[in-house]
Design a protein around this nucleic acid. Structure first.
Lengths: 120, 120
DNA sequence: CGGGATCCGAAAGGATACTG
DNA sequence: CAGTATCCTTTCGGATCCCG
């Protein structure tokens, strides 16, 4: 019985952190640098503060690069190679989600309404 | 710009939840029903309460089956088909982690031990 | 062994307001 | 637009005790 190798554990905890997976998926899907507002628009339930926070974390871990080029009108975020190589994993997860997750069953949407989770 | 399809979002939030990814990886890797204590041993930093909690969540979402068979000496947990089909995604993530994550850099281990590692 | 209940501190998350 | 700071609520998570 392996002890679930720490590297994998780190990875899943990093990517699985609240909105990180969504942000990464959007960036991968876009396949180009995105601006703050574009990201915010792509994940509507995500607040500015959280988006900023997650972005900084992803930067710190070398998944995302922040372009604050002064010749550009605005800031843009793009994936690094490290971040980009997550694409297969994300794609697999997406495929799984398509097969198994139902939209019509918001039994787990925590970003939405204060569902009193009465499922005992 | 897609709005990062909700199904994928649900999936990443579910699997990424604190210890769920590790638990699933252990179950997939074991490829047989595991008992509570085996799971606890495989993920040492995880407390009983949390393991129980995560297990119940994974049950509720149909990823894990709990065998409380009275003919068996003890309780065992095994993956459902839904859970088992996560294997490719987990494998991809593991491969990525092997490529990019370093064990020697616990810059993000929040599960940490109470070691007063004051290195800020 | 296999958990559940409770307490409580820590941390995350949301809303709003404010700034450059 | 692209954030930051503050407040405040909720949740998470660890420890401990308890039960069958």
């Amino acid at each position: 019985m392996e002890h679930c190798c720490p590297r994998y554990h780190q990875a899943v905890e990093l990517i699985g952190k609240r909105w990180s997976g969504a942000i990464l998926a959007v960036l991968i899907d876009a396949d180009r640098p995105l601006r703050f507002s574009e990201l915010a628009h792509a994940v509507p339930q995500l607040s500015d503060r959280l988006l900023s926070e997650r972005l900084k974390e992803l930067e710190a871990h070398g998944l995302v690069l922040r372009h604050c080029s002064d010749d550009s009108p605005r800031v843009a975020y793009e994936l690094t190679g490290k971040g980009r190589e997550l694409a297969p994993a994300i794609a697999e997860l997406k495929a799984w989600a398509q097969r198994w997750m139902r939209e019509g069953e918001p039994e787990f949407v925590h970003a939405a309404k204060p569902s009193p989770d009465a499922r005992d």
